[in-house]
């Protein structure tokens, strides 16, 4: 290579890092750096009034899943933690499935509209998503609380005699999460359906497939990457949900996010909070890794 290109490339490299530096500084200061400190904190001893003492300890990680009986020193699984883990996983999965059941037909519906109106339909899906999550959770709460719209309506119609308890149940959390994260399911499914070539459906019918067969054997396999992406996009934020279970779970039906918060509030166990945070992060990373692999495989298949 000539000296000219070498010199030019050196300048290019310098300029690149110079341009990147403001973003990198902000992100290191207020995103990546703090995350590293969380790792350190998870190996320290809790302070008396919150915070930490600089003594190394495995205790926090240990108590993520185990607990030592205060009196007998007997080791048992930390049932309280495990049941919250289990609830988080269960509710996230159920939310994902419910979001798929509603999201898939909706994406299909939008993708089969005339080209001009598709963007408008998508805008209708995206507007709620970009509005305040807390407000949307409020809206659900007002709808289902004891003196809320649904109960008032049912009472007025004479269908029920006393208000149904819907708020502060696992159902209400799930309902809220489906409501809040549904656009995240529709968006990627729609994106892959929009590229879908409907002459393939014609070919399917031409070759004697029924509507159901066309859906399951032609359409679904080809939009599967979108379905996987949508499922991950819903599942991951559900796992770490904090606002929705706090507002709709009423402090009883905690999820992981609330358990973590508890350690920094009343629990005053920052190391445990740190360890729980990293556990959540690990689960999310596994889910993302699964997604990357699934997406990668699909990519290879379509090339081969």
């Amino acid at each position: 290579m000539s000296d000219l290109s070498a010199a030019r490339r050196a300048t290019e490299r310098r300029n690149r890092w110079l341009l990147l530096s403001p973003a990198l500084l902000i992100l290191i200061f207020a995103a990546a750096g703090p995350l590293l400190i969380v790792v350190v904190y998870s190996f320290l001893t809790p302070g008396d009034y919150g915070g930490v003492k600089p003594d190394f300890s495995w205790n926090a990680w240990f108590s993520v899943v185990m607990e030592r009986d205060f009196f007998t020193e007997e080791l048992t699984f930390a049932d309280a933690h495990l049941s919250i883990f289990w609830r988080s996983l269960k509710l996230s999965l159920m939310t994902t499935v419910a979001a798929f059941v509603f999201g898939f037909p909706t994406a299909y519906f939008i993708a089969t509209r005339p080209k001009r109106s598709r963007d408008a339909w998508m805008l209708l899906i995206m507007i709620p998503f970009w509005t305040n999550l807390l407000i949307r959770t409020f809206a659900i709460m007002e709808l289902i609380r004891a003196e809320g719209t649904v109960n008032t309506l049912l009472l007025w119609l004479g269908i029920i005699d006393a208000p149904i308890q819907m708020l502060f149940t696992e159902f209400s959390i799930m309902l809220g999460m489906v409501y809040v994260y549904l656009p995240l399911m529709v968006l990627p499914i729609y994106a892959s359906m929009e590229r879908f070539d409907f002459s393939l459906v014609e070919a399917g019918y031409d070759l004697y497939a029924t509507r159901w067969k066309v859906l399951s054997k032609v359409i679904f396999p080809l939009v599967k990457p979108g379905v996987i992406a949508g499922s991950i996009l819903v599942f991951v934020p559900c796992l770490g949900a904090y606002v929705t279970p706090r507002v709709l779970g009423g402090g009883k039906n905690l999820m992981l996010g609330n358990l973590i918060e508890l350690q920094f509030g009343q629990g005053r166990n920052w190391p445990l909070g740190a360890a729980l945070s990293l556990t959540l992060l690990a689960i999310v990373m596994v889910a993302l890794l699964f997604y990357v692999r699934a997406a990668g495989q699909d990519g290879e298949k379509s090339h081969g």
């Binding site: 973003a23 995103a31 703090p34 995350l35 400190i37 934020p237 973590i260 740190a274 959540l280 999310v284």
Partner: peptide
């Protein structure tokens, strides 16, 4: 690094900022 805020659950980011800023 740029996408970290999208990948890491918000509660984890919140906790890490709480610790760091404290």
């Amino acid at each position: 690094l740029i996408n970290q805020p999208l990948m890491v659950p918000e509660i984890v980011t919140a906790v890490s900022l709480l610790i760091f800023f404290a």
